[in-house]
Nucleic acid binder design. Structure first.
Length: 286
DNA sequence: GAGAGGTTGCGTCATAGTCT
DNA sequence: AGACTATGACGCAACCTCTC
């Protein structure tokens, strides 16, 4: 994935390897990430002595990556900056259109991470609404319930065998009639009936008429209109699903990167603790 | 080489949430 | 209230890797 944001860290310094990505996964084939760690120095144009950088976790963005309220602002020392951008990404920079990125690895430089606690974005990743939604259990679909009851074939038989309908409508195998149909049927002045049909991508209102024999049929123009609407809906949903998967992948990737950064931080802190302990012991024995 | 099992991406459906 | 959107769930197909 291009343009993925990495968080600042205090790790051992080299590129963050992603421990969660399996070998051969897209993580390894993606373009090299921009890794911002404590020993990577990034160059800022002279006109801009400092820059505001937001964490990968953003508030109030229409994104899978969210936080409640705490934007992380980091004032970087002169000469250090992190500019990360990816248009249309779930990850946004302050301006959203930053493109420049220049990295100068300098083993001896240390980027201050003061005031940036990586954790404070991690604990508030989700809005309350989202959390609430995730707590909800989904109502099983009629299809699933039928499958569980071993009655899928019953459903299959019901599909597309509404008396008379098959003469005028080519029903797809996934079209099923909700149990509420009889109660929901409305007859209008024009002789058209309206009923709710499920299984056509979120449900639909279908109009039909009856002939002298009491058989159902869908008048041509209405059928065309319904078909067109369905195709449009499917097209839109197809694209929405694609976008949704893209965001999901990006989100997972982001979490994986975060794991890597935190692991590095953890490692560094353990090392620091160790050396401080040694120092303390030395001074104590002197 | 065949086939079993895992992975990945896609299209569709169902549905909660949002918008108008 | 109805239309629209986002996303979890499901089934399917293509591809890959292992094992025999």
């Amino acid at each position: 994935m291009d343009g993925m944001v990495e968080e600042n860290g205090t790790g051992s310094g080299t590129n963050v390897s992603d421990p969660l990505s399996s070998p051969g996964s897209s993580a390894n084939t993606a373009p090299p990430h921009v890794v911002v760690t404590s020993i990577v120095q990034l160059t800022l144009p002279a006109q801009a002595p400092s820059a505001q950088v937001q964490s990968v976790i953003q508030p109030n963005q229409q994104s899978v990556i969210q936080t409640a309220s705490n934007i992380q602002s980091v004032q970087l020392p002169k000469g250090n900056v992190i500019l990360v951008s990816k248009p249309n990404s779930v990850i946004h920079t302050t301006q959203g259109t930053l493109q420049t990125l220049q990295i100068k690895p300098e083993p001896n430089s240390v980027v201050s991470t003061q005031g940036q606690s990586s954790d404070d974005s991690g604990s508030d990743d989700e809005s309350p609404k989202r959390k609430y939604r995730e707590m909800l259990t989904r109502r099983p679909s009629y299809r699933k319930i039928l499958n569980d009851l071993g009655g899928a074939e019953i459903a299959e038989n019901r599909m597309g065998t509404k008396p008379g309908l098959e003469n005028e409508v080519s029903l797809s195998s996934s079209l099923s009639f909700a149990p509420v149909i009889p109660a929901g049927t409305i007859q209008t002045d024009s002789g058209l009936h309206t009923l709710a049909v499920s299984g056509t991508g979120g449900g639909a209102i279908v109009q039909y008429a009856t002939n002298q024999d009491g058989q159902f049929y869908v008048p041509g123009p209405i059928l065309e209109d319904q078909t067109r609407k369905r195709e449009l809906r499917l097209l839109k949903n197809r694209e929405a699903a694609r976008e949704c998967r893209r965001k999901k992948k990006e989100y997972i990737k982001c979490l994986e990167n975060r794991v890597a950064v935190l692991e590095n931080q953890n490692k560094a802190l353990i090392e620091e603790l160790k050396s401080l302990k040694e120092l303390y012991c030395q001074q104590k024995t002197e």
